[in-house]
């Protein structure tokens, strides 16, 4: 029985067609000269799923994230993304214009340091509105309205809309960066240590906010973190990396409660108990 026949049979029985992965990463490798950034990484990401990539510093987490988000060309391997029209495309075979358009509409990238992801010298409203203007929105009132709405969703007061992000605290900057990325309603967001450098109470509020937004918007997220608590709170599934390779993958609860690889066991047992 071919795939098409199976689908037809399922449709007749009233069972919805199986969802296809949003992002398919196959044998992704990036080397820096003789050193390995990441090697032979393969995984699928499904719509609405949150995947955490964990591991110690230098384990290749950020290299992997940059490779799958088209910010760093991999040495070999492929990354396929399923576009809104259902067609799966290799992001490194697309024209650059198409790839950049995808990055600022259907994708988001939340940097660890908000300064890398924000324009510090233009107002918060313009920061949020930039993506809207980039896709051709030319109505000031509408852009500003959308910006204010998004500031409210990330718990920033409306009267800060004309202030520059350099007058914001670290937590506010990070929330502003999230609003700036989500304003075009992307389907896939990459996050690099989104709570790094924030104190614990601010971290907790940010995580709470992120959890709410991810479930409300049905976002698929790839989040890189070295903080297992962040991974436990946010993610459905996780990948553990060491020396550029995936050493364990599975549901977050399974990996954290029943780690199999010796290194994962060490990682889990290293969590400080308060």
């Amino acid at each position: 029985m071919s795939d098409a026949d199976t689908l037809e049979a399922l449709a007749k029985a009233g069972i919805p067609a199986p969802v296809k992965p949003l992002l398919t990463v196959e044998k992704l490798t990036r080397v820096y000269g003789k050193r390995i950034g990441c090697a032979d990484v393969s995984f699928d990401l499904w719509p609405g799923e949150v995947l955490a990539i964990v591991g110690e510093s230098g384990s290749g987490k950020t290299t992997l994230l940059n490779c799958i988000s088209s910010r760093l060309t991999p040495t070999c391997g492929t990354v396929h993304y399923r576009m809104r029209d259902g067609v799966s495309a290799d992001i490194y075979k697309m024209a650059e214009a198409e790839r950049r358009y995808l990055m600022r509409t259907d994708w988001g990238f939340v940097h660890q340091n908000p300064i890398d992801g924000l324009r510090m010298t233009v107002s918060a409203g313009a920061n949020v509105g930039e993506r809207l203007m980039a896709v051709g929105n030319r109505h000031y009132g509408n852009i500003r309205g959308a910006a204010i709405e998004w500031l409210a969703r990330v718990e920033i007061d409306e009267d800060r809309v004309d202030d520059q992000p350099r007058t914001f605290s670290g937590g506010m900057r990070q929330r502003l960066q999230i609003a700036r990325n989500l304003v075009t309603e992307p389907r896939l967001v990459f996050m690099d240590e989104p709570t790094g450098g924030l104190d614990v109470s601010v971290q907790a509020r940010l995580l709470d906010l992120l959890r709410g937004l991810v479930s409300d918007l049905g976002l698929a997220v790839v989040v890189v973190t070295h903080d297992l608590a962040v991974a436990r709170l946010l993610s459905d599934r996780m990948i553990v990396m060491k020396e550029g390779r995936v050493i364990e993958a599975g549901l977050t609860d399974r990996v954290l409660d029943d780690p199999r690889a010796p290194y994962t066991q060490l990682l889990v047992s290293s969590i400080l108990q308060v």
Binding site: R100, G125, A126, G129, A134, I143, V161
Partner: peptide
């Protein structure tokens, strides 16, 4: 080259906001 001119409007937005 890629006709990405959204940034130009960010400047004009900033003007109106201020």
């Amino acid at each position: 080259a890629l006709e990405e001119y959204g940034l130009m409007h960010v400047k004009l937005y900033e003007d109106i906001a201020r």
